[in-house]
Amino acid sequence: MRRALSMTAAFTTLALGLTACGSSDSGDGAGASGDGAMKVGLAYDVGGRGDQSFNDSAARGLDQAKKELGVEGKESEASTGESESAREQRLQSLVDGGYTTIIAVGYAYAKSVGKMAKANPDVKFAIIDDASADSKGPNVAQITFAENEGSYLVGAAAALKSKSKQIGFVGGVQTPLIKKFEAGYKAGAQKIDPSIKVDTTYLTQPPDFSGFADSAKGKTAADGMYQKGADIVYQAAGGSGAGVFNAANAAGGASKGKWAIGVDSDQALTADPAVRPLILTSMVKNVNVGVFDFIKSVKDDSFKAGVRTFTLKDGGVSVATTGGHINDIKPQLDALQKQIVDGTIKVPAS
């Protein structure tokens, strides 16, 4: 979920921000630190490390690579509403620091990655959630996920668990990517109950990407859904999802039959402890798998450019069971998953 950056327009501030984030940079060698470790740069989407969702999943992939592959990492935060040139400058600063393996988290980087990859052919880039011509290049891995497939399963779970037969969906920004989450969720819910009502709200429209980092807007949107009768709300809204959880809590939480569904990470493990009990399940998007796989491919000299889509079949997306709230319906969800994997069910993406 997919998911502009933490810096001012001034290049000096950007450079300082990059220096302050991540591991120290010895600055020697192309792609290796002073001790010979491969140097990996990670440029976050809105919210950065600590968003309990999309960016945190990417961070886990880098952390795993540090531990298992011995790479050195540097992380660059993102801020709302920054310009294309700011994103380009961020990526170029990583290149200038000797980071020749670079991951850009989020489709907002598409044009920046395309331009920087062309200007720096010896650098290997990966972009999460974009397969467009804007980012395509012989040194670019375009990492995507079948969010619609995982969302189908949590939509089915919502329909099976709903008492009011009315559920909701809160999207951060109305883009084709987030529409994939909505499409899968609605299709899964309607598979179980064709008459179920699905309320949908998007917090912002492009080019305003603040919908991924505005928990107050998320709460307001979900408040309205719960007040109008929805008893389960799924959010694909990055950091704004915390507001959806707060709304479920304010509506009475699980004790009153008010649930929320998390996204990207197993948010019953990562969200504020006060709201974890009301998270019915989460559609886990294993960005960490894509990030680690890319870094390992560069280190092993097996890098391949182009689109790689992580699906339900290969563990790219999954449904969390933390809390045991969906244990009673898991056989039904497993049956649906099998049908998606074998192609019996074709999940819409729009």
Results as ranks from 00 to 15, higher is better:
M1P: 08
S6P: 12
T8A: 13
T8V: 07
T13Q: 15
A15H: 13
G17S: 14
A20I: 05
D25S: 14
G27C: 10
G34T: 13
D35T: 14
D35M: 07
G36P: 07
A37F: 00
A37N: 10
A37Q: 14
K39I: 06
V40S: 00
A43I: 04
A43Q: 09
D45L: 10
R49P: 13
D56F: 02
A59Q: 12
R60Y: 05
D63E: 15
D63F: 13
A65I: 05
L69I: 11
G70I: 03
V71S: 03
E75H: 10
S76G: 14
E82Y: 00
E82K: 13
S83D: 11
S83N: 09
Q92D: 12
S93N: 13
L94I: 00
I103K: 03
A104M: 07
Y107F: 15
K111V: 10
A119T: 01
P121H: 01
F125A: 05
I127W: 02
I128L: 14
D130T: 06
K136D: 15
N139H: 03
Q142P: 07
F145R: 02
F145A: 02
A146D: 05
A146G: 08
E149W: 11
S151M: 10
Y152G: 11
Y152P: 04
A157M: 07
A159S: 11
K165L: 09
G168F: 10
I178A: 08
I178Q: 09
I178G: 08
Y185H: 02
Q190Y: 01
D193N: 13
Q205K: 13
S210G: 15
K217I: 05
G218F: 05
G218W: 00
G218V: 04
T220Y: 06
A222I: 07
G224Y: 06
M225Q: 14
M225R: 10
Y226R: 08
Q227P: 06
K228F: 06
K228N: 15
G229S: 03
Y234M: 05
Y234D: 06
Y234F: 15
G238R: 04
G239L: 11
A242W: 08
A242F: 11
V244M: 03
A247S: 15
A251P: 08
D266W: 03
Q267K: 04
A271H: 07
D272Y: 01
R276K: 12
P277R: 04
S282C: 10
M283F: 01
V284Y: 01
V284S: 05
K285R: 09
N286M: 09
N288P: 01
N288A: 12
N288K: 09
I295Q: 01
K296G: 10
V298I: 11
D301Y: 02
S302G: 08
S302L: 09
K304E: 14
G306K: 04
G306T: 02
R308C: 00
T311W: 11
G324S: 03
H325W: 10
I326E: 05
N327P: 11
L333E: 07
Q339F: 09
V341W: 10
T344C: 06
V347W: 01
A349W: 07
